[in-house]
């Protein structure tokens, strides 16, 4: 027998956002973005193997504003998925599963992602210019 007014969860419209669930969804989103980004990686390698003309095509694309936007999204997704992935691996050992640790780990992941992305782009742009 079905009860019409039983609570149904999660009710996304009224569900309060919290760090833990947002980071969980972002881990998946970043994984999807990185999967799409692998096409770029393979394109780059195949173009380099094919010769100067093919490589110029991928270099021009990566140097365009769309290329930069994709590369930025890719580095952000990569560092996030990497940091949060390590958080997941720690959980897999059975550690850090209490509420306090999940929030502490979550904020560490957010900070680490921002810092690593910033460092990578500063290093990348200075390497590109000089």
């Amino acid at each position: 027998m079905r009860s019409a007014d039983r609570p149904i969860s999660p009710h996304l419209q009224i569900y309060r956002w919290q760090l833990t669930s947002v980071l969980s969804i972002l881990h998946r989103a970043a994984g999807l973005a990185l999967s799409a980004g692998t096409i770029l990686l393979v394109w780059w390698l195949v173009a380099a193997a094919s010769g100067p003309d093919a490589y110029q095509g991928v270099a021009d694309f990566l140097g365009s504003w769309l290329g930069f936007l994709l590369l930025f999204g890719w580095t952000l997704s990569l560092f996030y998925h990497l940091c949060n992935g390590i958080r997941h691996l720690v959980w897999d050992t059975g550690h850090g599963l209490d509420l306090k640790s999940t929030y502490l780990g979550g904020w560490l992941v957010v900070g680490g992602t921002g810092a690593l992305t910033l460092i990578a782009w500063i290093a990348g742009i200075s390497s590109w210019v000089y």
Binding site: G51, L82, G85, A120, G124, I125, S127, W128
Partner: peptide, 23 residues
């Protein structure tokens, strides 16, 4: 996942050093 931790960090550093490099 464990294998990818060092491999991706190595790759990002390598790509940074190759930024703007010719074929």
């Amino acid at each position: 996942a464990l294998a990818l931790v060092p491999l991706t960090l190595w790759f990002v550093i390598a790509v940074i050093r190759l930024a703007g490099a010719d074929v």
